[in-house]
Every structure is written in structure tokens, then in C-alpha cells.
Design a protein around this nucleic acid. Sequence first.
DNA 1: CAGTGGTCTAGACCACCAG
DNA 2: TGGTGGTCTAGACCACTGA
Lengths: 247, 247
Amino acid sequence: MAQLSFELDRSSPVPLYYQVSRQIEAAIERGDLAAGARLENETGLARRYGLSRPTMRRAIQELVDKGLVVRKRGIGTQVVGHGQVKRQLQLTSLFDDLARSGQKPTTKVLTHEIAAADEMVAEQLGVDVGANVLHIERLRFAEGEPLALMHNWLPVQVASTFTVEQLESGGLYALFRSTGVNTRIASQRIGARNADAAQARLLGVRKGAALLTAERATYDDNGRAVEFGRHLYRSDKYSFEVMIVER
Amino acid sequence: MAQLSFELDRSSPVPLYYQVSRQIEAAIERGDLAAGARLENETGLARRYGLSRPTMRRAIQELVDKGLVVRKRGIGTQVVGHGQVKRQLQLTSLFDDLARSGQKPTTKVLTHEIAAADEMVAEQLGVDVGANVLHIERLRFAEGEPLALMHNWLPVQVASTFTVEQLESGGLYALFRSTGVNTRIASQRIGARNADAAQARLLGVRKGAALLTAERATYDDNGRAVEFGRHLYRSDKYSFEVMIVER
DNA sequence: CAGTGGTCTAGACCACCAG
DNA sequence: TGGTGGTCTAGACCACTGA
């Protein structure tokens, strides 16, 4: 346990449980806490950090939710033995993901129009059939190579000010943030299909190539749907990672 | 708020926060709490249920984690307006999923052998290269139609007693449970590929058809890897659903 | 300003597990 | 039997929101 730092900044706005959680997480990633290692018990850790047990518990719960440790009553807390560390899927756009991994994303807007919501879009966005929605179609490149063909429909109240220039200079989620829309929840269905001729041409693959598909609805902190999308990804350049932690 | 039942069984082993959470969830699913509706504040709900605020908070947090409600400081808690209710991905086998939706799954074991772990399997399972692992290959049917072709590698300590008969009569996760292995965490990578001739023949699709692929590692409550799998799914019959809730 | 959720404390009792 | 995590209580103070 000597590897943990036990340094807390009580004047910081960063919650104590989060500070502790990050310190233990760092120890695991450094290998100071090896796979299978047992953590000290909750009361002991709380005492060392000068925290109450509920706060310490919450710190450890963060690690449980991330799949880094497992807890068992009567036993203790152990570090999970991941072969390769995998990051949890997060609520960021493909653009942000690519930029963070240094892949220089660019975007070309193919369609940008106000359209009437059909039945599916209306249900997904929670608007009336025929209501005005912004329909956009974008082609996303990474390092100059086409990667994804993305269709989105957005309520005009949310997206009326979105311009082609804004959509080509960054990701949709960043645009949401800059206009005061706080995305909170996304629900996706992931599947596969063969590329038709038009899709193949745009994505630079042969006709019939296997594409990864995603249908996604996103909701903001008011619980309103702010975006519905149907996307196609080149399967040779993209895949989804999902971590499931039993409740 | 009159729609909630406020009935708790304090003698039940079911946690109070869980009882409350389920009652509110039921009210949302019945439509008694409509999309966009505001819940009563935490202290008020706690008083009505005769609970402390931390317990009430935990009940609501369950709903937040499920993507059913959103909370905002200074505002309150609101019901999310989902177009169609989507279930969180759970740690169950494909077999269980099919059985629960009444699709009469069956399994044919194509391969069942002890093999030496190659580098990839060894890393994923946390065993030495060349160590003995059980390698199985299964074809899964739903309603008599082929649906998935599944390759799995399992440490012999975990799976040495697994028979072909057991593997054909149920899912892998149920087999784990019955042998005292408690699965807790699964990490998956989901992609797509074109079916080759052999895969196409087994799955009953044409060569080149788009297949959904999944690579999955599963860990038990000791944090040990108990299974690594590479699976192929017919994309016309299967897709993954993922819900992401911002932390 | 009053009201909301976010964080934190200092206890308590319990179920479960290993020795 | 002693130690572990799981649950629950009754407070407290704070940051943020809207009117």
C-alpha cells in the first residue's frame, strides 16, 4: 500500500472521492498494484486518507464501475487482471476520439438542409411527424482517408444556428457544448451491412465491403432528444469497444 | 407523485434503495411519470418513503445509471424522453438472450479440444504462452436458423469439466454459474467483416455477406480472465445495443 | 432569495467468508 | 470467531439555479 500517495487537496473543488479514485487508478496503471493484488480494507484506507468510510467507499466504487477492481463481501477488493487496458466508451464524437489519438480528422458536409421529420425520426427525436428538423450528411476523414459516412437529424430548436463551416471545423458534440447543450445519454444500436455502390464510392472501399453501422439517439441534461443519427464506418479502420460491469 | 406506491418491505433482504428504484422505474414505464416530468425533490421523496436522504439518493442514482432520468443541481430530476425504451447491455450469454425472448436457441459444438495458448490467447487469459486451454467452436441457432459462429478459449482450471453435452444444452455463462464461477466484467470489441466461404456455408449466408464480429474477454469475481472469444454474427439477425451515460 | 442536487461525516447493524 | 464489504441513518455544509 506504500505506493499510494495519500495526498488530498481539501481546498480543491475536485471531490475527495474523485481525487482518491484517480490516485488508486494511477497506482494500478503504473503496476504498483498488480493484477490480483488485494487492496487494504475500506476502513483502513479511509483512516489512512483521513476520510470517512462512505467517501472511501465511493472512491472504490468508481474503480468498480470502470472494471478495474472487484469487491467481495468477506473477502476484500482485488485488482482485475486485464490483458490490455481498455477504455470505457464515452460520450464524445468520433471527431474528438480521432483528434485525441492524433489522427487529424477532417469533415466534408455533403448535405445541410431543413427537412420534414418522417415517422422514424419523429419518434426518435420526440417531435411531431412533419416537424422541421435539420438533416445533415457528413463524410469524415482521418489522415485524409475516408472513415465514416454520417447522417444526422436534429430538432431545429437545437440546431438552427449550425452552419456548414461549424460542422466542418469540429465534431457535433463540441458544437453542442459551444451552444449550451449538455449531452448526457446516448443509446446506440450497432450492426453490420454490405456497402452499396454509392457508399463504397464515398468511403473508398469496394462495393459489398462489410461496413459497421450505428444508429444513435442522444439526450441532453433536460432529458430531450437532441440528435438522431445513422452512421456507416469502414470496418478496416474502426471498431467499438464496450465494457460491461455486472451490477 | 400520487402514482408511486410508497410500499416498502423492511423485512425483505432486497435493499430498500432497490425497492424504491424499481417502483419509480415501473411508474416511468407505465407512463405515470411522463417524459420530461419532474420528480419530487430528494428530501421530499425520502420523507414520503420514510427513508434517509442518502438511501433515497442511491435509489435515484440507479435510475440515472440506467439512463431513465437526469439530475441537475438547482433544478431537479427529470424523466428522459426515450423514443423507445432500450435495455442496457448485460452480462448474459447469447443463449440466455435468445431464450428470454422466446427464440428457442440450440447449439452445435464443432470443436472441443485442449490446445496450447498462442500469444494472443495467452495475453487475454493471463496465462503463459503454450499453456493448456480449452478451445471450443460452436454454431448457435435460433428457431433452427444459424445465427452465430463462436470461438472460445478457456483456462483449463476453469473449464476442464465442460462437456460437449453441457455446451449444447445451454449457454456458456450458465455453465460458469453452475460450476461456481461468477462472471463480473466483460470487455468487448465490436467490428464487421465479410464472410469467407467456410463461414458463409456454416451461417447460411452468401460468401461476402457482412458479418458482425465481437472479441470478448470475461473476468470473474476474483478478477481472473475466465474466457476469451472471437464471434461472428449474422448481421440480418443480430445487433448490439449500447447505452452510454455521462459520468 | 429559496430550493435543488452534490459532497461529506461519524457512526450503526448486518450478511458473508475464511480460518 | 474476526474481518470483510453491503446497507442505512441523521445530520451538515456547499454550489448552482431560477425567480
